[in-house]
Design a protein around this nucleic acid. Sequence first.
DNA 1: CCAGTGATGTGCAAAGTTGCACAGGTGCGC
DNA 2: GCGCACCTGTGCAACTTTGCACATCACTGG
Lengths: 295, 295
Amino acid sequence: MTRMSDFDWDDLRFFLRALETKSLAGAARSLGVEHSTVGRRLSALERSLGAPLVLRGPQGLQLTPLGEKLAPLVHDMGRAAAAVDDLVNAQKATIRLAVPSGFTRIFASTLSQPSAKGLKFSLDILSGARPRDLNKGEADLAIRAAPLADQNLIASKLCEAGFSLYASAAYLSRRPAPADTNDLTGHDIIGYHASLSSAPPSRWLEKHAAGAVLVLRSRDMTDVLGAALSGIGLAVLPCLLGDAEPALTRLTPRVLAKQNLSLVYSREFRTSEPMRAAIGFVRSVVRQNAVLIRG
Amino acid sequence: MTRMSDFDWDDLRFFLRALETKSLAGAARSLGVEHSTVGRRLSALERSLGAPLVLRGPQGLQLTPLGEKLAPLVHDMGRAAAAVDDLVNAQKATIRLAVPSGFTRIFASTLSQPSAKGLKFSLDILSGARPRDLNKGEADLAIRAAPLADQNLIASKLCEAGFSLYASAAYLSRRPAPADTNDLTGHDIIGYHASLSSAPPSRWLEKHAAGAVLVLRSRDMTDVLGAALSGIGLAVLPCLLGDAEPALTRLTPRVLAKQNLSLVYSREFRTSEPMRAAIGFVRSVVRQNAVLIRG
DNA sequence: CCAGTGATGTGCAAAGTTGCACAGGTGCGC
DNA sequence: GCGCACCTGTGCAACTTTGCACATCACTGG
């Protein structure tokens, strides 16, 4: 491990301002502290380094030769610190939005439109099988089905998503479409994982597909979609996903289940301005696409 | 003026160690503080920046995406800090030695010899008209005539310098050499500035050149030497300077005045190892050239 | 010549930071 | 299963740093 500079780095921040203003008092004004503090921090730095950096006089400060040589290095350090600051500020204006499958397309097309210019934040769309953990900082804002009770999180109702029954052309070429979609006895069904059993789609299947054959279960919506496309069975899918697939035939004109979607974000962002703006943006985008989502 | 990063730079030093060791306790050991301090400094940094950097768990620390992005910038800052440290350490091993005219040659030739290799310090020779102010950090060590009483300075006797009377060939072609060097009545004399009136050369002139013509006065020994070479008058010069000039004739075989030279340095360097080594080196060099200096 | 401005240095009380000791959780090996 | 080694979190007393008020010194303009 590399030997470490063991003096107080923050003293260099004072030294940097002091060598810019050439006076303790000027640096103090600029830093918002007392001149005595600047003087003491410089003394502490000189003590740590074991060499004098400035000469103090009634007319201000004068750099020693060593202080002169140190100046560019301290400026480098200042630039690095400013880079840290800039990166953090840019990051704070970036909202990472985790969305369920299907929403990616909606946001991607909206963000590329001219109306998305000039927003006070930048939006990163995250999607994928694994739900992001907001508490671990994997995302800042999420569209979620489950209104899980977490003290650190704030959830607000966003919209209703509609589900319908879909079959691929391949499936329909093997089997006739069910005469009564309320009784799927004898059909092959792509179901959901047990952990989702309380969700509306699962509960609908439990009620109307008791006599059907479960050929596959998955927690991931894109898996279910893929399985349905391959033709191995019927699937209950969000209309947003199913209606967008030309290869799938929607078997129930009316939605057979509804699920509330919520906007979830960490409590610590409650007062964040970019977050409030992003929430408003997400709500407006969802409102514009409400028909597709409700089915 | 450029906007300044207003968080505590020293917190980044803790963050750097924390992201290297991936644990509060490890960073604490490495920094020589308590783990609780590291944790609190990281919390303070996150509060200042307004964004979380690490996730703390029973198995150690895990960087957030922002922390990950910050890592290289903080490493940059660490390198800059290490550069500051290195520069200061190199500086502390450099002794700037201020010498009177004539000594430059002695040290220059000695330093270029192989015996000067492997010294634990590096020597900068400063010379010139203006005496360097040790209190202002213009030099670290000086060979001085005047044993001035300054509480901040330490002076120790170094050697005796001898002075003789010199004339250039040009002068001797106009005038005969003085028959009795103890009475320069009628000769042209290059004297010293009033501020040096108490120095042995000035006092000798005052006594033996009362009837002479003062054609020039100067505080700077090289001015006097140059004037003597130009032939406008006789001059009392250090033998070290005068004997080295082939164009000058020494008129007094025995030295006519002696001056004690001292080694002077700031009290704060009393315990500095490079300083002690440099003092020993200077004394040995002067001892080797004692004959030239005494005249 | 003398007050006014602006610089640094210092003593003291308040505020902040640190070390210490202890609590609580997780993973590993016997 | 249980002890052990490792990690992080927290409360309190001791220490350090800060702000404030005041003193001192140098320059400047009326």
